[in-house]
Simulated scan of single mutants.
Amino acid sequence: MIFSASYDTPVKIVTPITFLVLILSFITPAITGAAVSVYYFLIPLIIIATLACIAYAPKYYCVEAGEIKIYRILLKPVTIKIDSISGIEILTKAQLKGSIRLWGSGAFLGYFGWFTTRKLGKAMWYATRMDRTIFIYTNDGKKFLISPDNTDLFLDQLPGIV
Results as ranks from 00 to 15, higher is better:
S99P: 04
T117H: 12
T32W: 08
C53N: 14
G87L: 00
D131I: 09
F115W: 08
I43R: 08
L120E: 13
D149P: 12
W114H: 06
I146D: 05
G113N: 05
D156W: 06
L153Q: 13
P159I: 00
G160W: 10
Y60F: 14
I90W: 00
G106M: 09
G33Q: 11
T133I: 12
L102A: 08
A127L: 01
L102Y: 01
I80S: 09
I161V: 15
D140C: 09
E67Q: 14
G106A: 08
I134S: 00
L42Q: 09
I73E: 03
L22K: 09
V78H: 07
K93P: 00
I27C: 11
P148N: 09
L158A: 02
T50E: 08
L24Q: 11
A65P: 07
S99L: 11
Y71K: 06
I161Y: 04
L91Q: 02
Y40P: 02
I68T: 14
Y137Q: 10
I82T: 14
R132K: 15
I134Q: 02
R101E: 00
W103D: 05
I161T: 04
Q95S: 07
E89D: 05
I146L: 04
P159Q: 03
R72Y: 12
Y61A: 03
K97Y: 12
P44G: 14
T92Q: 08
